[in-house]
Amino acid sequence: MTLQQTIETKLADQLQPQHLQVINESANHNVPPGSESHFKVVVVSDDFTDKPLLARHRLVNQILAQELQHTIHALALHTYTAQEWREKHANSPISPPCLGGSKG
């Protein structure tokens, strides 16, 4: 399992996210090709409800404690509740419902 997959699996298991993006940004940094050193995580979970940012980041840091200690060099973290995520992406409209035309 790659480090990226490990991060994805652990966060998916423990936060039941509605949305999870783990992006390997190592290629933007001064590390050999194919490295897994710099990651960006975007995670939307209702486990973050009523938690300030510090507590949300602590929660993620704790889930990834082992990886942070040994293998991850940098971790950018963007944490949202489902409601915050909807508000943030209000400009990306919800697609219209099916009106049954193809059954014609």
Binding site: L53, L54, H57, A76, L77, H78
Partner: peptide, 11 residues
Amino acid sequence: LIGGCDITLEL
């Protein structure tokens, strides 16, 4: 502690 880069920027 306020946080790291991401929290500081978001605040």
